[in-house]
Design a protein around this nucleic acid. Structure first.
Ligand SMILES: [Mn+2]
Ligand SMILES: [Mn+2]
Ligand SMILES: [Zn+2]
Ligand SMILES: [Zn+2]
Lengths: 163, 163
DNA sequence: CCAAAGATGAAAATGATTGTCATTTTTATT
DNA sequence: AATAAAAATGACAATCATTTTCATCTTTGG
């Protein structure tokens, strides 16, 4: 079957390990490296992205986290900046089923995701064999591959997976 | 970089080979196998999906093709039925960047796509090694994998690839 | 401090997809 | 062929994530 429905339980928290905590000056130099001005809103968005345990967050998630600090933040600012981060390779985008786009800071190595379509759990994995095959496929078809999406969907065999 | 933008030239026709031409009675039995009533609109949508050379079509593409035969067709009918076909595994869905969902009749074997983000060309490929790794990853993480998405994005080294 | 250049937020716009519902069509059964 | 129940259709409104617009602030280099 193809991805035709949202992962039902996707509101649940994910079980990913908390990630490296980046310092304020780390975040500022990130912004400078993007040739963007350093604003409180942007720093706050980066902090929100960097805050565990939920590391795959939607624009709405970010908006809510930042709103606590800056109640006047606008959605446009969040969306605009998230797109920038993705454009500059600071974050990667995750499109799961028909759910809103999720973002994650690229603080860990390149990886992909297995999504439980029952409880929404997201597990990360890496696979060198697949990455090698991607290069091969590109070569075989005379394409310069710039990026790829690769996500697995199924059911986690977890005792506490909902229902 | 992640998929942050639409393939620019995606309006262009794709260069996929025309696919097996299914007969009207083939299409009718498809519908019956789905426990759906046989209507002219549905047959026309299936025909549209089955018509080359563009085999990865959006709801709008289908709407336009069907409109020629049934000028009163509504978008709702197209969307509703396309979703059904996907649910029953008659079609597979393709989500390319932020472009509208594309559908393709499952008349060929399981495969994936390389998309040229410059000219929109879509090339299909199969890779057994990757499919095997998918099974392995599922097993390793104790998931029952139901489906997966896997698409490569890049530039085709094609003399007639736009600019 | 000052003046671009850039960033922000409010609000409206966009665009794909879905929901509603009155009307029509299909199909199995007389 | 007539009929009745179930299902499908199409017009239209609604949703909802994301983007655009634009007038008003901020940032930053000089
Ligand atoms: Mn991840
Ligand atoms: Mn295909
Ligand atoms: Zn990869
Ligand atoms: Zn596959």
């Amino acid at each position: 079957m193809e991805i035709t429905e949202l992962p039902k339980g996707y509101t649940k928290d994910e079980l990913i390990q908390p990630q490296t905590k980046l310092s304020e000056s780390n975040l500022k130099s990130m912004l400078r490296s993007m040739n963007l001005k350093v604003t409180n809103q942007r720093l706050s968005i980066l902090k929100a992205l960097n805050k565990g345990p939920k590391t795959h967050v939607t624009a709405k998630d970010v908006f809510e986290r930042v709103s606590a600090e800056y109640p006047n933040i606008g959605f446009a600012t969040v969306y605009r900046f998230l797109k920038e981060t993705s454009r500059f390779g600071i974050t990667s985008e995750l499109r799961i089923g028909y759910a809103p786009t999720r973002y994650e800071l690229k603080v860990r190595e390149h990886h992909h995701h297995i999504v439980c379509t029952k409880c929404g759990k997201i597990v990360e994995f890496q696979n060198e064999i697949i990455e090698d095959q991607i290069k091969k496929v590109g070569k075989d078809h005379n394409f310069s591959i710039e990026h790829h999406i690769f996500e697995l969907y199924g059911f986690c065999n977890n005792p506490n997976c909902c229902k």
